[in-house]
Design a binder for these strands. Sequence first.
DNA 1: ATCGTAGCCTGGAGGC
DNA 2: TGCCTCCAGGCTACGA
Length: 295
Amino acid sequence: MPELPEVEVVRRGLERWVAGRPVSGVEVAHPRAIRRHVAGAHDFAARLTGRTIEAARRRGKYLWLPLKGADEASGAEEALVAHLGMSGQLLVVDPGSPPEKHLRVRFSFADGGPELRFVDQRTFGHLLVAPLVDGVGGRVPEPIAHIAPDPLEPAFDADAFAARLRARRTGIKRALLDQSLISGVGNIYADEALWRARLHWARPTETLTRPKINELVTAVREVMHAALAEGGTSFDHLYVNVNGESGYFSRSLAVYGRRDEPCPRCGTPIRRDPFMNRSSYSCPRCQPRPRRARI
DNA sequence: ATCGTAGCCTGGAGGC
DNA sequence: TGCCTCCAGGCTACGA
């Protein structure tokens, strides 16, 4: 379940192990992995083969690898875009190592060094090649131009976020999970940040004061920085970083996945509520349900 | 325009 | 033991 901190760990791994290397081969083992590359697997491979990866960038949970040189036909700058979904991994492995059970796409390099492999059990992740366009905070891949900056980016505008948030007519957690308002916040860190800010997940956005919104943004940043410092959250074998190393932030979570365990702040048993066919974890005492709740 | 929901997908857990 | 159902969850498409 990679969220922003985990994706950032992967980005750093890609920057170190893949940037500057020329792609020599692309093998799409499972077409669903490139379903958002509408021109298909052949085009996907053709756009990458012979190109050199320049760098590794990230916004929210999206990664992209800008490619050196423009596309010959369109003249556009392009990038390999990746979203890990729930279970996606980008692994840097020895070319001779046996294929992983859920290997979806394999990239080889002209330098003969380690391969890059996209492995994804639940197939919610995807890869595509897309042109770069001008967006908030710089050049971004066209398909993700609608995603708002994440709270760790310099381009994140807290004033604009607060204004748009208060104009919404929904619950705060639903708004936090809306990647067009603020990107990179998933179910885990939404619950953790709301707990830190002592906000119930169903609190109507229009009732939030500016100081409370600032507190919430600070809480989001703190929980992400904490996760990043520990190498990202991990619950099981599914999440590993680019080198195959597991993160271990899960033991630091205050409420997520801790139903009936004591709140670290007041000792009240943590509750689990159904939310959008999923779960919300919160402390009944620190985060009382508002009288007018918006789900 | 904005808000809310169904559906995508696999495998582990737990019930019987 | 094996079969069944539930659960995890980011994102898109679509309906209201």
